[in-house]
């Protein structure tokens, strides 16, 4: 089971990449007593039957591992949301991509910790392939607000397969997440 909200989001991003997405948008907002998050992509999308099956932990599309009969990423997320009293919406259609939107109560005892937002952005941008990923982050109470695009980061540091580039990219992303001076 995933530990943090950032783990759930990375899992959805990995689904998007495997669904052939060219552009993925990840949004994480802490405001009005909620942790609101979304992952949107322009991948192959799912029809109504596949959307329903994706909620079943004992189903996977079989494209990667033909004999595998479990697919736990989405069931983990839905389980955690149900347990914590969260809300979610899944919009998807073949050929028009997938959009996940979900929210956890920020102060819920069963709400997972937010996790490492800079690490999420870095891992989400470090999969193979020539896709665009936009990470939008906002936490007004802590003065955090930033948007970073994978293309801009790769343009600045080079391929995100090099330890030097990854170290610099992480330092950059961590500096975006730092609270503004004077705000605790």
């Amino acid at each position: 089971m995933h530990f943090s909200v950032s783990d759930f989001l990375l899992d959805l991003v990995q689904n998007s990449i495997e669904a052939g997405a060219r552009t993925v948008t990840v949004r994480v907002v802490e405001d009005r007593g909620l942790i609101e998050a979304s992952v949107g992509d322009d991948g192959k999308g799912m029809d109504e039957a596949v959307k329903a099956k994706a909620m079943d932990p004992f189903w996977t599309d079989g494209e990667k591992h033909a004999r595998r009969r479990v697919g736990l990423g989405i069931p983990f997320l839905v389980h955690a949301l149900r347990q914590a009293g969260g809300d979610w919406e899944l919009e998807s259609a073949p050929g028009s991509g997938t959009l996940w939107r979900f929210s956890f109560p920020a102060d819920g005892v069963d709400t997972p910790p937010l996790g490492d937002m800079a690490g999420l952005a870095l891992s989400a941008m470090a999969f193979d392939g020539d896709y665009e990923l936009v990470m939008e982050r906002r936490a007004p109470a802590r003065g955090t607000e930033w948007t970073v695009r994978r293309s801009e980061l790769r343009d600045a540091v080079g391929e995100l397969t090099d330890a030097g580039s990854l170290t610099l990219a992480r330092a950059f992303l961590e500096s975006q997440e730092e609270p503004l001076d004077g705000i605790e």
Partner: peptide, 23 residues
């Protein structure tokens, strides 16, 4: 490996440690 199973087991920590140690 950064699939569902890897993420759940702590692959991000392994990834970070590899990047840091290679550097």
């Amino acid at each position: 490996g950064m699939g569902t199973c890897g993420i759940a087991a702590g692959a991000k920590e392994a990834f970070d440690a590899i990047v840091q140690t290679v550097d």
